[in-house]
Design a protein around this nucleic acid. Structure first.
Lengths: 67, 67
DNA sequence: TCTTTTTGTCAATTATATTTTACTTTTTGT
DNA sequence: ACAAAAAGTAAAATATAATTGACAAAAAGA
């Protein structure tokens, strides 16, 4: 997979660090980092939580950024 | 979580059985069944594969059908 | 430069998604 | 009603998502 730059940008837009986003969605900083790095296959529940916190939809953050 | 009736409907619209959809996305029939039942938290990769096969987006099939 | 924050990364462990096998129940078609 | 197909379900095993702890590299602010 490729890097998830949409997620990185959406997080930047909310002025949140990886650690802050992680805490907001009940995950760890490493997990958020791995998702942004792209070499990861998170669960839909975590994706939904991230979308809700960042005010985006699944299609906006997790659609089409792949091989 | 609640049942994923959107997925069930989208599959019916394509006239596919759970087994056929499972094979098309490289998963098992039980996994598809569990996702439709709702008591499950699939990975985003599998969700994407399902969407592609059924001609739907993540938002259409996996957004907001929860507790 | 110096200090602090943030990000990147790794190994080991835990939690859980997914598979495999198998059986029962429900639905569909004749 | 009967047979066949599809759906529902369960236990055990495997694959992998996610955590924990820790440290190095990069970025930001003074």
């Amino acid at each position: 997979m490729a890097k998830n730059l949409k997620l990185k940008a959406a997080r930047a837009q909310k002025d949140m660090t990886q650690a802050q986003l992680a805490q907001a969605v009940g995950a760890t900083r490493q997990t958020i980092n791995a998702i942004e790095k792209g070499e990861y296959n998170p669960t839909i529940r975590l994706c939904r939580a991230i979308c809700q916190v960042l005010g985006k939809t699944l299609d906006e953050l997790f659609w089409e950024e792949e091989e």
